[in-house]
Amino acid sequence: MKRYEGLEGILLIDDDLPTNFIHKKIIERVSVDAAVKSITNVQEALDFITYSGIYEDTPEIPRPGLIFLDINMPGLNGWDFMDTYNRLDKHFKARLIIIMLSTSPDPEDKEMALVDNEVVAFLSKPLRPEMVTSLLDRYFKEVG
């Protein structure tokens, strides 16, 4: 298993359970030593990051260093997540790498995503092992 500095957890935010399952398996295939958590809605994801709601007393659960965020979800979507995330206190965002994912062929989605300074990449679903490896190598330092 590969360990990366600042990467104790990876968060998948996607309303589609099969997609989360597949992406979790792909991350496991890369053999990264990080807890992978799947959340299917924006509010719960924000609660997880900020230790609020049902995650209020859960400091033992590793928080993410890397987030894969779907754009199109019912209710609050990826854009709503980013709007709220950008207003969070900086200690909740200390070392988070956010990757937006979409099946949308709309080039405006990519442009909008990359205008946000907190989003480092916009990728098409599904994730592939080489995509995950490339992101880990680019944004994290391998240790031990």
Rank of each mutant, 00 (worst) to 15 (best):
E5D: 15
L7W: 02
L7E: 00
G9F: 08
G9S: 09
I10V: 12
D16F: 08
P18C: 14
N20P: 01
N20Q: 14
N20F: 04
F21W: 10
K24H: 01
K25Y: 02
E28T: 14
R29H: 00
R29A: 10
V30D: 01
S31Y: 13
V42E: 14
Q43C: 09
A45D: 07
L46R: 07
D47N: 15
F48Q: 02
T50R: 14
Y51E: 08
Y51M: 06
G53Y: 00
G53F: 00
I54F: 12
Y55M: 13
D57I: 06
L66S: 00
L66Y: 13
I67Y: 05
D70V: 12
G75E: 02
L76K: 02
G78R: 12
W79Q: 03
W79A: 10
T84M: 13
K90R: 14
A94W: 04
I98C: 10
M100T: 01
M100E: 03
L101I: 04
D106M: 06
P107Q: 04
E108P: 11
D109W: 12
A113K: 09
L114T: 06
V119K: 02
V120G: 05
F122Q: 01
K125C: 02
L127E: 09
P129V: 11
E130V: 10
D137K: 13
G144Y: 02
